[in-house]
C-alpha cells in the first residue's frame, strides 16, 4: 500500500512539476483569471490522482490539458451564470502585452503576432497557442480540444502563412533601405 502510494505520489509530483505552470497559463488564458486558473489546475491534478494511470500514461499531456480545459469551461459556465457578464470578461488578460525584454529587441514583430492572433476566432487562437506555446502536436491538440486533426492543421497552416506574409511586409521596407 505504501509503495503504491509513493508511486502514485511520485507520478503526480512529476506531472505537477512539468505541467503546473503551462496548465496555469493555459487555464488563465481560457478563464482570464489566474486565481481561478489555479483552482482549475488543482482540480485537474486531483483528477489525475484518481485516474487510471495505465490508460492515460501514453497521453499524459493531452489528458491534462483536456481535463483542465473541460474543468475551465465548467467553471466558466458556472461563474457566468452567477455574475453579471462584465466582470469575467472585463478582467484583463494578463499577457496579451509583450514582455518588456521582447519589446526592446523587436516590438514590431511582437505586436504583429499578437495582432494577428487577436484577429483569430477564439477557437483558433487556442489551437495556435497549444501548438506554439504549449508545443503539442496536431494529434494532441485534437485530443485536447476535440477538433479534427485536419481542421487543426488547417488553422495552424493558414495562421502561420499569415504571420509569414506579415513579417515579410514588415521586414521588406526595412531591408530596402
Amino acid at each position: 500500500m505504501t509503495t503504491e502510494h509513493e508511486r502514485r505520489a511520485d507520478r503526480v509530483r512529476e506531472a505537477l512539476n512539468r505541467y503546473e505552470a503551462p496548465l496555469i497559463r493555459y487555464a488563465t488564458r481560457l478563464t482570464g483569471n489566474s486565481e481561478l486558473a489555479r483552482d482549475i489546475v488543482q482540480d485537474t491534478f486531483v483528477k489525475l490522482c484518481t485516474a487510471d494511470w495505465a490508460k492515460i500514461e501514453a497521453h499524459l499531456a493531452p489528458w491534462l490539458y483536456r481535463v483542465c480545459r473541460n474543468r475551465a469551461f465548467d467553471v466558466l459556465k458556472k461563474e457566468k451564470r452567477m455574475q453579471p457578464l462584465a466582470e469575467g470578461q472585463a478582467e484583463a488578460r494578463p499577457d496579451n502585452k509583450p514582455a518588456p525584454a521582447a519589446v526592446a529587441e523587436g516590438h514590431e514583430a511582437e505586436d504583429m503576432v499578437h495582432a494577428v492572433l487577436a484577429e483569430l476566432p477564439e477557437k483558433n487562437q487556442e489551437i495556435f497557442r497549444l501548438k506554439f506555446q504549449h508545443e503539442l502536436s496536431y494529434k494532441e491538440i485534437s485530443e485536447v480540444t476535440g477538433h479534427e486533426v485536419n481542421n487543426i492543421r488547417y488553422v495552424i497552416h493558414t495562421t502561420l502563412k499569415t504571420l509569414r506574409q506579415q513579417l515579410q511586409g514588415r521586414l521588406d521596407p526595412a531591408l530596402g533601405q
Binding site: 496555469i24 491534478f45 509583450p98 514583430a109 511582437e110 506555446q133
Partner: peptide, 15 residues
C-alpha cells in the same frame, strides 16, 4: 519567432 513571442515570461505561475 512565434514561439518566442508567445512564451509567457511570467515567472512560472505555481499552485
Amino acid at each position: 519567432t512565434t514561439r518566442r513571442i508567445l512564451h509567457e515570461d511570467d515567472g512560472e505561475p505555481a499552485l
